[in-house]
Design a protein around this nucleic acid. Structure first.
Lengths: 344, 344
DNA sequence: CTCAAAAAGGTAAACGATTACAAAACAGAA
DNA sequence: TTCTGTTTTGTAATCGTTTACCTTTTTGAG
């Protein structure tokens, strides 16, 4: 059933080597022979064996996709799935397919990504930052496998990373609040270990100071990016003596959770408290009120990651990191005074 | 750097064959040797080469993931990504990794899935129904490659499929309306070619008749599952002479679009028109009003698909199809009269 | 017409596993 | 001790490519 290169060679009346050269466009072959061989390949629908090819060339044309978290939610993560999708489309154009590690398979103990990668002879890996950056990620970073991180600072020789310019994220939000006379702002962070969350928090604090606004430590709470944690932490904040005029959350889901808590406390968004999230997930547009957010350019991030990884694999010069500009999207949840044109 | 089985054999003082047998637990090896070999493997972190193994065994332990649509949105599809995720987790436990076809790579002309599958020597494929079932999907279905379809009826010798019991979907909704005195119901369908949409539409019509309710052909509109089409089609419906009391859409996104159209027309959901969607995507909970929906058990669908595919690959007996029960989730958008406990 | 250089094509050895099959080692019985 | 039968281990071919290197053919200048 399945044809080998030898049989194709026989049919075309040439040697296997010639067929191989035609397929890979290496070596000098006469136009005549090329035609002949191509026709046979066409007619038979011959497909070279991936494993044989990989075995000899040591190149698999496969990229490993790793989600660095325990929750195994990469595909329904409302932010990352856009990045993954865009990455997939771009890297596909460059001739790679994507292998998704099903971490569960070896979930007893740490997953050894290097072993997995070398087992499959992957050309490179894409790491999407999740809640938890384990040891095995670090090892992969330090290995000589080309690796690109999204929202995750990598430092290895063969590593680069792309992320939104988190400094600008917080700054834009704080600036907006400042310009609209809002001075008391709470901050809902992600896990204490999360790099992204920490950058935003730090630049939040710094921006606040730059604009001469006070930062109340009680108003900085750590959650885990998900809705429930936003709800819980907001409740805690509301129990304090004084109330913030606004909340900025590191994820839309936490922001949505916060809105729920605020409404439950009998307060109104945005009249009593403005809310701004991060990511611009689908739900922002359908929430009540619609949720203001800082949009990350996920398409661009995915594209850049793909391009960088390809360059890394091709041993071209690649910048250590690329920062993508965020965009503040105003929606009802942060409308102020006259700006606020109610809603049914 | 990378060790081969031969070197491991040398280190352990045995033959490569013995090492292979230890790894794969085939053949009779003395406990003593097993210990020795295992220790070396442990110490060296040896990983057998995937391609060499695949080359000889003709088994890759990889599953191809295909999204049967042109939109390339599999990873941010608000319904399928849950299925994919659950599938991934289950199939991972069974020892498979997932290869995602980056259709773009060969997007000139039809993608030849069979060629791709045989190129990689995939053990099987999972097909997620998208907007468009092309010829190449049909060919794959008819091939002898084990294949499981989600929301897609496959008929091939080596194929099975899983989907929500769409008859029950429509019936539950119609029944709910019937019980609450609503008689005039519009229906927002997907593409005319979409199997899922058609099943729901047909059983909608049938259920309506069973409950003695009239079906107005002008109130059945075809869209494409996405928000915009729900909006457009609902607008068309509202331009008719008489107005329905309720709309049932084949997707939540279309339902959200419909709500937008209804509000724009100055009408209220649910007071003037009730709305029910399908899928229970995240946004349902955050929309205004929250959107009632028929939830599909995506986790279960993913699990079943994985199990079936594994059985198919292992040449065990597998049912041709499996139907999963849906669940009607009542939310504000379909609350009736006294039931309706308003919202700010 | 000769001959060197360039072009075209072929040979055979990898790559790193698996697996029939053969061989060796061992046990116990006679 | 010898022999038979069972366990254990090893040998070598195989899977389907690629590629270094070699051979043959072609080309065209002198």
């Amino acid at each position: 059933m399945k044809l080998t290169i030898r049989e194709i060679a026989k049919m075309a009346g040439v040697s296997p080597a010639t067929v191989s050269k035609v397929i890979n466009q290496t070596g000098r072959i006469s136009p005549n022979t090329i035609q002949k061989v191509k026709r046979i390949i066409e007619e038979t629908g011959y497909q070279p064996s991936f494993s044989a090819k990989t075995l000899t060339t040591k190149k698999s044309n496969m990229i490993g996709l790793i989600y660095a978290g325990e929750l195994n939610v990469e595909f329904n993560h409302p932010f990352f799935n856009h990045v993954i999708n865009s990455f997939k489309n771009t890297i596909g154009l460059l001739g790679y397919d994507i292998l998704v590690f099903s971490n569960q398979a070896i979930n007893i103990g740490e997953v050894d990504y290097i072993a997995r990668a070398s087992h499959y002879q992957l050309d490179g890996c894409l790491i999407i930052a999740g809640e938890d950056i384990g040891d095995s990620i670090t090892k992969l970073d330090e290995s000589n496998i080309p690796t690109v991180g999204v929202d995750l600072e990598l430092s290895g020789e063969q590593s680069s990373y792309v992320m939104t310019d988190n400094k600008k994220v917080s700054k834009q939000v704080v600036e907006y609040f400042y310009l609209h006379g809002i001075r008391k702002v709470a901050f809902l962070a992600g896990q204490e270990k999360s790099q992204v969350s920490n950058e935003r928090r730090e630049s939040f604090v710094q921006s606040m100071k730059e604009f001469g606004m006070d930062v109340d430590d009680n108003w900085i709470k750590y959650g885990n990016y998900f809705e429930e944690s936003g709800y819980e932490k907001m409740k805690e904040i509301l129990q304090e003596d004084s109330r913030p005029d606004a909340v900025f959350a590191v994820s839309d889901m936490m922001a949505l959770g916060a809105m729920r808590a605020i409404k439950e406390a009998g307060l109104s968004v945005p009249k009593d408290i403005k809310v701004v999230g991060c990511d611009d997930i689908e739900a922002c547009r359908y929430s009540d009120p619609s949720l203001a957010t800082v949009k990350q350019d996920q398409i661009k991030i995915g594209k850049l990651a793909a391009t960088m990884l390809h360059d890394l694999i091709s041993e071209r010069k690649v910048p250590k990191s690329l920062l993508v500009d965020p965009e503040l999207i105003i929606r009802d949840s942060c409308k102020v005074g006259a700006d606020f044109s109610g809603r049914s």
